[in-house]
Structures are given as C-alpha cells and as structure tokens.
C-alpha cells in the first residue's frame, strides 16, 4: 500500500533568488528594524555603558519631543531641507540638459565627459575651505557644497541613462522621418525618463549627505549645526535625535521619489 500522495511542500524561504510573499517580506523587515532597536535599548539600560555616551531610545525621543516643542526643531529641519532642495534643484536644472546632450551627441561627450570625470574624483569636501573663502558661511556656501557634491555625478549618470536608450528606438524614429530635435524630445527624453528619475532619487541621497557635511563646518543653523553644537555640551541625546531625524527625512524623500516613479511610469510597474 502506498501512502496517500503528500500535499506539495511549500518551497523553502532560503532558495537562492527564490520568491518571498508579502507577509514574509514585512516579517523579516520588522525583525531587521526591531532587533537593532532592542539591542540599543538593552545596551543603554545595562550598566556597561555610561548613558552620557549612549542615551537610551526613551531619552532620545523625549529630547526630540522637547526639541520640537520648546526649541525650534521645525526651523532647524526647515532650513536644512531648504538648502538640500535649492542645491539639488540647481544641480538638476543644469545636469539634465548637459547629460542629455552628452548622451545624444558624441562630440559633446568627448568635449565634456573627461573633464566631468576628472572633477568628480575631486572630493567635494575638499572644496569646503575654498567655498568658505569665497562665500563665508552664507547660504550660498552650503548650497555650493551640495552642488559640487551632486552635479558632476548627476551629469555622468544622466548621460549614461540617455546612452542606454535602445538603438532600435532611435533608428525607428529616424526611419519615420523624425528630426534630431524630435528624436531628443520624443524618444531619448521619454525613454530615459524613468532611469533619470532614479538618478535623481539616488543623487538626492548624496545631496543630503553633503548638506550635513556643509552644516558641520560652515553654518550657524540647521540639523547638522545642531548636532555639532550638541557635541560641545555633551548632549548625546541631541546628536542621536538629529542623526535619526536626518535618516527619517532622507527615507521619506526616497519613498516620495519611488511613489512618483510608480505614478509617472505605470507601464513599468506591473500589468495595467
């Protein structure tokens, strides 16, 4: 007698490049986020570390609350977001057309790409002393650092996005009688748009990093400056709170870009 046929076994979660249900995804995500948080809470509550150097989550969030209510957290966050936005938009406004031209025309590529490649390897942080000499610690100084840190990378990435447009898409337009201007506007730009939005999302993350760098050395306001000020007075809870806040704002911006991607390019996200 043979045993009744076994019901098909669920595939293991640990198959290489295997599928993962939504429920499992969120389960693992929750573990990944909660475990470090619990470790942090446990470590700070233990006698091993001085709470001055490692404040517990409760103290950090209480501090964030008083920062929000009594001090001007919104002003600090607002000025930081403003700087990122201006620096980032300035980069984007110049990098998009330039990247498009480099990607579309080989002579422009030869003219500008080696130069851009060279400058992008100069660390943006090393420009800070020069920028401070030129602009002092005015807004333009912070915005310049963000610009230097993102612009050159952005140009090269946008150029690459444009170069990756399938040749057949361009040639099809040529055989249908499209002019050069029409090929750039109706094919290259449209085809590369989703990839360019991803480029903007990634460079936004870098803009955020350079903002903090700029605020640490050349500012008297903003989240980065608050972190620096807190160090002088040994207010580690403020440092923790500031870092977490910067992370959360960055994450929200990233998610906003992803949402925009889904809304703007429905043809790339699932069927219908």
């Amino acid at each position: 007698m043979s045993a009744p046929p076994a019901s098909p076994r669920r595939p293991s979660l640990w198959v290489i490049a295997g599928p993962l249900s939504r429920r499992h995804y969120w389960m693992f995500a929750a573990i990944g986020l909660l475990v470090p948080f619990i470790l942090w809470a446990a470590l700070s509550a233990s006698a091993w570390v001085d709470p001055v150097f490692l404040p517990g989550p409760a103290r950090v969030f209480a501090r964030l609350a008083t920062w929000l209510i009594e001090d001007d957290l919104m002003t600090d966050a607002g000025i930081s977001i403003y700087r990122v936005m201006v620096g980032f938009l300035l980069s984007a406004v110049l990098a998009l057309p330039l990247g498009l031209l480099i990607g579309a025309f080989r002579p422009v590529e030869a003219l500008l790409e080696p130069l851009t490649d060279f400058i992008r390897y100069m660390p943006a942080v090393a420009f800070i002393p020069l920028v401070m000499l030129w602009f002092g610690i005015e807004e333009s100084a912070k915005i310049s650092i963000i610009f230097i840190g993102t612009f050159f990378q952005m140009v090269l990435m946008v150029a690459e996005n444009v170069r990756l447009v399938p040749r057949a898409q361009i040639e099809a337009a040529q055989t249908m009688g499209a002019s050069r201007e029409e090929i750039i506007r109706l094919v290259l730009l449209q085809s590369a748009k989703p990839a360019i939005l991803d480029t903007l999302r990634i460079t936004m993350g870098w803009a955020w990093t350079y903002l903090v760098v700029a605020e640490l050395v050349a500012a008297n306001s903003g989240l980065g400056y608050s972190i620096l000020k807190a160090q002088r007075f040994l207010k580690t809870d403020v440092i923790f709170g500031g870092i977490i806040l910067i992370g959360v704002i960055g994450l929200l911006m990233d998610q906003a870009f992803r949402w925009l991607h889904r809304k703007a390019f429905p043809y790339l996200h699932g069927r219908g």
Partner: peptide, 28 residues
Amino acid sequence: AMVFQHYSLYPWLSVLGNIKFSRGLKAN
C-alpha cells in the same frame, strides 16, 4: 519604413500611440 528585430517599440506609449507615432512628426 523599417521593422527591426526587437526593442523598437516605445514602451511609454500605448499600442495605438505607437502606431500613430509618426503622425505627430513635423515631417509628416
């Protein structure tokens, strides 16, 4: 007119939008 082996359609346009593409060009 030319028909390519693949990757020549415009993924951001509908089927009808692809077919009508050349209609929107100045030359035509």
